[in-house]
Nucleic acid binder design. Sequence first.
DNA 1: AAAGGTACCAACCGCTCTCCT
DNA 2: GAGGAGAGCGGTTGGTACCTT
Length: 298
Amino acid sequence: MGGSSNEGNFNEIRRGPWTLEEDNLLIHYITCHGEGRWNSLAKSSGLKRTGKSCRLRWLNYLKPDIKRGNLTPREQLLILELHSKWGNRWSKIACHLPGRTDNEIKNYWRTRVQKQARHLKIDSNSKRFVETLRRFWMPRLLEKVEQNSSLSPSSSTTTTSTSTTKTNQNNLSFLPQEEHTLIPSSSLSSPQCIESENLDSRSSIFSSNSMAMLPENSNIQTNPNGDIGYYNSSLQNNDCYHVDASNFDMGFIHLDMQAMGPGDMPASEVQVTEADWMKNDEFASTFWNMDELWHFKK
DNA sequence: AAAGGTACCAACCGCTCTCCT
DNA sequence: GAGGAGAGCGGTTGGTACCTT
């Protein structure tokens, strides 16, 4: 199995950081001949690199559509959601973040997300941590996304969304009748990605354009006003996240999500008074320091 | 200003998967 | 169906930039 070790004369194989000349050589070769056949590419191009190394350099760094810079809150939100579904399937997750590489997402997860898990002394693969992300982190990211979208000049989407969502109040097509996903259909680029859209309908609401994040074990319900809410059956107080359908922003992540706890407490207060393990003061204070997690690169 | 610590990310490694003969 | 080669994936490491003391 795996013939990739047979890459040629090891004495001549270069390792370590790529030089500008090597980059240019690789770009030029791929421009002329296209990508693929990495081993023969490595030989023919004159690069003293393995095919694997060439492939990695191209896919993770040189490819023209690579997006550089910090992950946006929206992208972070997607990563959290998709990771909770698929685990460490980085390339699968990367399929849904155009311009982002699996390596970048993996690094983000390890350096930012797992760091928080360590601080909280929770196993980052545990259900508890997933629940933590869903209940604390993701709603806050949603807020960030909302803030960003309302600040951006293109916030006209809010206006358009109103009329669109009015339709949806009557036609609740985005409720989990079928498979729902967080991923905008526009990002479904490769066949590999398309096969993987069977997300758990309990955890995400998604129509062709809208999306929302819900905890595991949530039961989606509507009230007579047409508002959408869901109850988390795993929580003792039968607490309810409330999603105002009128605030769904079609075509963009935008929704007014607030925790409706006992006595209609503000979201932040409700959240730290929930299930037993969340009553721990140390936990709460640690978690609410997570703003650093979505800071932007300097 | 220097030293030590930390965070980030590019690159490597070993393994598995897929395709072709 | 078996075997080999290429491609891809996820885990890990090493270098460096940045931060703190």
